[in-house]
Design a protein around this nucleic acid. Structure first.
Lengths: 212, 212
DNA sequence: ACCTGAACACCGTTCAAGT
DNA sequence: ACCTGAACACCGTTCAAGT
């Protein structure tokens, strides 16, 4: 068989994408690989270590955009790429909740982001905080927004919204159709990202104005 | 004993805050309440239903700021309050990952946010997308940023950053001290929030300019 | 040396029996 | 009617035995 850690991590990631985080059990993964459950523990000390390896494999799919052109466009391309990889690996973001993954693979995108921000004129502290904001938004979106809404989801959510007390929650009821649309999809992601980029550009302009 | 659903949900939330999401098991919660495990199923059909009720109790702690003053300040106060409640209930945000909670309690803050945004001059669609951005940021932050870093966390993270390949990840290594500081804390949260608010203000000004 | 079945201490939930 | 112990079908991981 000649299995490697990477092959096992890939199989874990595939299972995760296919059936969700609850389906990824050591027994299940082992049986899909055609090995005994305990054989996995020869490659990874614990399940968490295996999950980190799977998250790392997903992170390596992020392709770093070329380092030319205006900072805003480059940053937008990079974050959109992060978003798309997360979308390709639903559940991948859950693997990174609460514990930071400091593997070289996972930090490639961070390195590229910091490079863009420092090049744009942000200080080290500003670049660090800005990356954290962008990271939080991209990963948070992938955790809280389902991949896409089916027509059934949509009508179900709308029905539940209509059942809400209109006297207590008038704005929710009023905006329900738009709010449901805003719950998923790349368009929603990009709208939010562009607001953040507007804020960053505004700050950079103010900063340049002061320095002149 | 005379237990109510709310009392059980509160006990679940307290256990969650005290020992984390893994510690909240039906057996454990029942034994803390001094009842048999299966008695819980007389109040909630499934564990998920109980988790939703616990998340709802946390959401009810969010106090809605008074509806006067400039929109930006009001919105900032509201989101900061959401952040603080999430901070008081670590694990609370995990309860809402992937499945939207449409209870009246959880939607009180949404209603207040939409009210502020519509009052500021955003369209319904803009208000819906903007609230989604703010929600994603506040909840994402609480999932990905630990409550606070201990000195031990800090030195551990810095040591791991120094061990990274400086030729592949030069910017990460260079910015490591600032990046570690940016990984937790209310200050980090507020810096990101203010960038978003800058972006929103900028958009509103542009919109008003066009209408004139 | 490498692999793995059995076993341990857990889960959420069903079912049937207790009061 | 309300409560709940036993049981079922699972977990991650330890341990000891197999090759």
């Amino acid at each position: 068989m000649e299995l490697s850690r990477a092959q096992i991590a890939d199989a874990a990631l595939a299972l995760l994408d296919r059936e969700g985080v609850d389906a990824l059990t050591m027994r299940r993964l082992a049986s899909e690989l055609g090995i005994g459950t305990m054989t996995l523990y020869g490659y990874f000390r614990t399940k968490d270590e295996l999950l980190d390896a799977a998250a790392d494999r997903a992170a390596e799919e992020i392709s770093i955009p070329p380092m030319r052109g205006p900072w805003r466009r480059r940053l937008r391309t990079l974050i959109l790429e992060v978003h798309r990889v997360l979308r390709r690996h639903p559940g991948g973001s859950q693997l990174r909740a609460q514990r930071p993954l400091l593997s070289p693979g996972a930090l490639r995108s961070t390195n590229a982001g910091l490079e863009i921000l420092l090049g744009a004129g942000f200080s080290r502290a500003e670049a660090a905080h800005t990356w954290r904001l962008l990271f939080t938004y991209a990963f948070g979106f992938s955790i809280f927004s389902p991949d896409q809404l089916t027509d059934e989801d949509r009508s179900d959510l709308l029905a539940r919204a209509r059942a809400l007390p209109a006297d207590e929650l008038p704005r929710v009821v009023e905006v329900a159709p738009e709010a449901v649309e805003a719950m998923a999809g790349e368009d929603t992601f990009l709208r939010g990202l562009d607001v953040i980029l507007d804020g960053l550009e505004h700050r950079l302009e103010r900063k340049r104005g002061r320095q002149r």
